[in-house]
């Protein structure tokens, strides 16, 4: 038996919106301590990893580990039934064939229920090693979103360069070339801060199209954390207050 109730259902709605363009069918892992999922996109270029702790739920019960195979596209359609102020409850029996999703609005007394059919997914076994990232950049999520969006109109690829003084996003295209450079800024106004933790400088190229997809999660978190290592994929991380973390992994583009 699994049951989890989230008071701020909007968070779950936003999470589904933030991953639905990247992954289609996903195995959701339910454990007594929380909910997690990990899945690659069909081109194997990007990976989504979500971890939600039971502590963030108003009520959480999972007697055993369970795997729920879900079509994210269909889950997104069901989530449209939820009002932004709804509480959301997820329920599944042992050996479940469907996931029951309940939306409740205590103010308006409206309740919506949907039984989403589960599917069997042959998922790849992913193993993400613990990695020490040599550059970690914490940046306002809205600002990072805007930088990626505007640079995409100028080029398909961005080169991210880090060093102890700044992080630089540079593009080169038919229009011309240029860069946005952000220095370390620990100003009192928290939302303006850009925090650089660089032990080794990194220079890598990435497809901006994917960064734009990841940035749909910017409404979940005030800050985006970029974790870089010269020999590793980029990690774009959004902390969800009191609940968990949504991470995206992106393979670099390699010059020949």
């Amino acid at each position: 038996m699994f049951e989890a109730k989230l008071t701020e259902g909007l968070i779950l709605k936003k999470i589904v919106e933030s991953i639905k363009d990247i992954v289609t069918d996903v195995n959701i892992d339910i454990s007594p301590s929380g909910i997690s999922l990990q899945a690659m996109d069909s081109s194997h270029v990007a990976l989504v990893s979500l971890n939600l702790s039971m502590d963030g739920f108003e009520h959480y019960r999972a007697d055993t580990n369970m795997v729920l195979g879900v079509s994210i596209a269909n889950l997104a359609k069901v989530m449209k039934l939820a009002d932004n102020n709804d509480q959301i409850t997820l329920q599944a029996d042992q050996e479940a064939t469907h996931l029951k999703i309940i939306f409740e609005n205590p103010k308006t007394e409206r309740t919506t229920e949907f039984n989403l059919n589960l599917i069997t997914i042959d998922s790849e076994h992913l193993a993400i090693p613990e990695t020490e990232y040599s550059s970690v950049v914490t940046i306002n999520s809205g600002e990072f979103s805007k930088i990626c969006k505007e640079l995409f109109s100028l080029s398909e690829t961005v080169q991210i360069t880090t060093n102890t003084d700044y992080v630089q996003f540079s593009v080169e295209g038919e229009v011309g070339s240029g860069q946005v450079r952000l220095g370390h800024n620990d100003s009192e106004k928290k939302e303006d801060q850009t925090i650089l933790e660089v032990s080794e400088s990194v220079q890598q190229q990435f497809a901006i199209r994917y960064l734009n997809m990841f940035n749909k999660a910017s409404t979940l978190s005030s800050f985006t954390r970029l974790c870089l290592h010269q020999e590793q994929p980029l990690v774009v991380e959004f902390k969800i207050d009191n609940l968990g973390v949504l991470k995206y992994f992106l393979a670099p583009k390699i010059s020949d």
């Binding site: 194997h44 790849e124 393979a251 583009k253």
Partner: peptide, 14 residues
């Protein structure tokens, strides 16, 4: 422009 790499060599368990 660089060539797009895949995540498989990094993360796919064999």
């Amino acid at each position: 422009l660089g060539k797009q790499h895949s995540l498989c060599p990094y993360y796919l368990a064999r």
